[in-house]
Nucleic acid binder design. Structure first.
Length: 334
DNA sequence: TTCATTTGACCCGT
DNA sequence: ACGGGTCAAATGAA
């Protein structure tokens, strides 16, 4: 993206968010260490700092004149979210978003056997650390049951269902599609919740598995949690280059952080990695989602004596009661 | 032998 | 008719 001149406010906001990112990396490092009371305390301190910084960033974003327009575009009220139709998605990618979500947001399922009560969550996942064939393992075992070429999309969409669908009637499915603009990125749409029991999940990891950390790293550095409401927001009529000049017209999607800190040979250490995509953070939506990832981590703060090292990825679930009005997409600990 | 993947056909909503 | 989602037979890998 070619933003001509970045305002001081935005630069300051980005600076704040860079600090947030550094704190998240510190948190990641801390989570790698053997967890004891001291490390848990340190994690909590880091989380407090992250929360404080994100609060400041949000305040800056709301006060910054050149971001408020974008904020109006991207932060609809909860009432708006409920009222806005999901039409008008501009790209094949957003097609995956809007079209796929309609059956789940609207009462009537579009496809046969579609479950109207299903929820859906979208994430954009970097595949840099997981090979070119697909995004990293998300902790569940999936079985591919189909693949389709999607109109207007360069890459086919793969359909997966939970391996335990038959044995445990687990309704979870996901769709994975490589993004058009970046082959290293995958749009993953999760439908339904896993009802399969952990004990029966043959591919479950041992307690000290890297995926637990990958989950947190993903939150902080690789994943963009995009709720239905956010997708709806992305498809809002006001989201036009005219009315939303600060926003990139390329895609309603955004990558939480361009830094694949654990996958590009760039150690997720204290020293910050180069951030090649920062200049591309052209929208408040992008910034907001970075904040979201941080806030998701901060949600862990309230956990009693959370042993992050031992926490399995499956402990996370998307907070479906997420309120776009004032909160952020978050993960909760069931 | 079992399980996962591939892929063409089918179903269903628009 | 078209496009997206699912089914199920064929195939391959462990």
């Amino acid at each position: 993206m070619a933003e001509g001149g970045e305002s001081g406010g935005r630069a300051q906001l980005v600076s704040e968010l860079v600090r947030v990112q550094d704190l998240v990396r510190l948190l990641e490092l801390q989570l790698r260490a053997p967890s004891d009371a001291a490390s848990v305390d340190l994690c909590r301190q880091l989380i407090h700092q992250i929360v404080a910084l994100t609060d400041r960033s949000i305040g800056m974003a709301r006060c910054s004149p050149d971001l408020t327009a974008a904020a109006h575009c991207l932060l609809p009220t909860a009432a708006q979210q409920q009222q806005q139709p999901l039409s008008g998605a501009p790209s094949p990618l957003s097609d995956a978003g809007s079209d796929l979500h309609q059956p789940f947001l609207r009462a009537s399922p579009k496809k046969r056997k579609a479950t109207a009560r299903w929820t859906s969550q979208q994430v954009r996942v970097s595949a840099a650390g997981a090979g070119a064939e697909g995004p990293a393992d998300d902790g569940h075992s999936w079985r591919k049951y189909g693949q389709k070429d999607i109109l207007g999309a360069k890459h086919p969409r793969a359909y997966y269902r939970c391996t335990h669908r038959n044995s445990q009637n687990c309704p979870a499915t996901k769709q994975v599609q490589r993004t058009d603009d970046d082959p290293n990125l995958f749009d993953v749409v999760y439908h339904g919740d896993h009802t399969c029991r952990p004990s029966a999940a043959s591919t479950r990891r041992a307690p000290h598995n890297p995926h637990a950390q990958a989950a947190l790293q993903g939150l902080a550095a690789r994943l963009t949690v995009t709720t239905d409401a956010a997708i709806a927001a992305a498809a809002l009529p006001p989201m036009t280059p005219e009315s939303c000049p600060a926003r990139s017209a390329s895609s309603p999607w955004s990558l939480a952080s361009p830094v694949a800190s654990d996958s590009n040979g760039c150690a997720p250490g204290v020293s910050p990695c180069p951030v090649p995509g920062y200049a591309d953070w052209g929208s408040h939506g992008d910034l907001r989602e970075v904040v979201s990832a941080c806030a998701a981590v901060s949600d862990l703060q309230g956990l009693p004596a959370l042993d992050c090292e031992l926490m399995p990825l499956e402990c996370f679930a998307f907070d479906q009661s997420f309120d776009m009005g004032g909160a952020m997409p978050s993960l909760f600990y069931p």
